[in-house]
Computed example of a mutant assay.
Amino acid sequence: MKKISEGTCPVGRGLARTGDAWSMLVLRDAALGLTRFDEFQRSLGIAPNILTRRLAALVRDGVLERRRYSERPPRDEYVLTQCGRDYLPILSALGAWGARYFGEGDVSQLVEAGSGRIIDPVVVDRATGRPLDEIDLRTVLPGGAV
């Protein structure tokens, strides 16, 4: 399988860090409050060697932070960094898209911390506030090249 070319493409760089299914599911579980290796493993049913690699990569890339909670035996927990918290709306939008087009199911939700109000994520044009799914879109490269 060919490795994703990161180059100067922000999409490629983002996918290289969070684009595999296990990493996204680890981040989903971290957003739900799981922090410990055994919690992730139990929730995901993931092999320990794969989970170890995913956690190490997410820490290396600054998406999760490792914090020691026990010296004897040495044990760490994994918590979202600001980079990881900034990824949560992407996961939420992906979950909403998946539920819409590939079947209903329980999808974790973003909730406004102060009020407890459930957030319905949509991607909008910052300049107009219009949802992107209401705009006829096409993609171009920087400088307008197609």
Rank of each mutant, 00 (worst) to 15 (best):
S5V: 14
E6S: 08
T8H: 09
P10L: 06
V11N: 07
V11W: 12
V11T: 10
A16D: 06
D20Q: 08
A21L: 10
W22F: 05
W22P: 00
S23Q: 03
L25F: 06
R28G: 00
A30Y: 00
A30N: 00
T35H: 02
T35C: 08
R36I: 02
F37H: 01
E39C: 02
E39P: 00
E39R: 00
F40M: 04
S43D: 06
I46G: 00
P48R: 11
T52C: 13
A56N: 12
V59A: 04
R60A: 10
D61P: 03
L64F: 05
R66D: 02
R68K: 11
Y69E: 05
R72S: 14
D76Q: 07
D76P: 00
V79H: 01
L80R: 08
L80S: 03
Q82T: 15
C83L: 08
Y87L: 14
P89G: 11
L91Y: 04
S92T: 05
A93D: 13
A93P: 08
G95M: 02
W97N: 12
A99E: 12
R100Q: 14
F102L: 10
G105A: 10
G105E: 07
D106M: 06
D106R: 05
V107Y: 04
V107T: 13
G114M: 11
G116E: 14
I119P: 03
P121M: 07
V123S: 09
D125N: 12
T128S: 15
P131Y: 13
E134M: 13
E134Y: 05
D136E: 14
D136A: 13
R138M: 15
R138Q: 14
G144Q: 10
A145M: 11
V146E: 15
